[in-house]
Amino acid sequence: MTGHAFILHLTRASARRENAHRLRDSCGLPAEIWPAVDGAAMDDRELRARVDAGLFAPRYPFPLRMGEIGCFLSHRQIWAEILRRDLDHALILEDDAGLDPEHFAQALTLGRDHLDRFGYIQFQTRPARGPARLIATQGACQLLLPQMAGLRTTAQLVTRASAEQLLAASDRFDRPVDTFVQSHWQTGLRPAMILPSGISEIADQLEGSTIQSARKPVLEKLRREWLRGRYRRAVRHASASSAAPDASHD
């Protein structure tokens, strides 16, 4: 299998540069650092060309922040690069990922062994919300197919076919990339996940998130929490009734 790794790194995020190089050198595949799209540098015309609202149900309840738009476009660039290079698959890592080489090597072997079957495998940092079917194990690592796919795009394996499928479905988008990938009732692609994966989130040890918003008043925070809870319930329902193919029964 022809595989390659891309380390997404925002050039101005200098505090993350050393970690990006560390990921490149320790991820277990031929790798390069890929310059992420800087959402803050985009103009209104570029935004209108990509971002829409209410594209599919459940409707995403928040306007996209500039960093979220840049993050989505960065992943789309890599999906397109997978096709351009005719790679069998790619490992995509974000520059705030922590990587334990020993445990990640087990997770990577497990993921690559089953990647053709699932197409998109997340190296998760959090347990699944709700039911998840155990598919296989490698050492302490478990490959699971959750009913409600996980969030986070910290690290994932993506096949060429899945990159093509996701790229075609996201010419315009209305939600963050991890929330889009979670929406298998819309994309037709059910992400599997590995946990523990040897991947952790270390943004707080670097410079914090590059997708930040201003501090909000208490009432606004409460309103957002209510909207987020309602959205999650709708996602849970859509996940349970999804018609996306279930590779665990192949």
Rank of each mutant, 00 (worst) to 15 (best):
M1W: 05
T2D: 13
A5G: 08
F6G: 04
F6K: 09
I7A: 03
L8D: 11
T11K: 12
A15R: 13
A15Q: 13
R22V: 00
R22A: 14
L23R: 05
G28A: 05
L29C: 06
L29S: 04
P30D: 15
A31W: 02
I33A: 08
I33E: 10
W34A: 12
V37A: 08
V37H: 08
D43V: 11
D43S: 06
D43W: 08
L47E: 07
A53V: 13
A53P: 00
L55P: 04
A57T: 14
A57M: 08
Y60D: 05
P63D: 15
L64D: 08
R65P: 00
G67F: 00
E68K: 10
E68L: 09
G70C: 07
H75E: 11
Q77G: 15
I78W: 06
W79D: 04
E81S: 05
I82P: 05
L83R: 13
D86F: 01
L87F: 11
A90H: 07
E94M: 07
D95I: 06
G98W: 09
P101S: 09
E102T: 12
H103F: 00
A107R: 01
G111Y: 02
G111Q: 03
R112C: 06
L115E: 01
D116V: 00
G119F: 02
Y120M: 09
Y120Q: 05
I121D: 00
F123T: 05
Q124Y: 01
R126Q: 13
R129D: 14
P131K: 07
R133H: 09
L134M: 12
Q138C: 13
Q142S: 14
P146G: 04
A149C: 10
T154W: 03
Q156T: 04
V158I: 15
V158H: 08
S162A: 07
Q165V: 02
L167R: 07
A168T: 05
A169Q: 15
S170N: 04
R175S: 02
R175L: 02
V177T: 01
T179F: 02
T179M: 07
F180K: 08
V181T: 10
Q182G: 03
W185G: 04
T187N: 06
L189P: 01
R190I: 00
P191C: 04
A192Q: 02
I194N: 01
P196L: 07
P196N: 10
G198Y: 04
I199Y: 03
E201P: 01
I202K: 05
A203T: 05
D204V: 06
Q205E: 15
E207S: 15
S213H: 11
K216W: 03
P217Y: 10
V218G: 03
R224G: 12
E225I: 03
W226D: 09
R228V: 00
G229C: 06
G229P: 05
R230K: 13
R233L: 15
R233N: 09
H237Q: 14
H237N: 07
A238C: 12
S239D: 03
S241M: 12
A243Q: 14
P245F: 04
S248Q: 04
H249G: 08
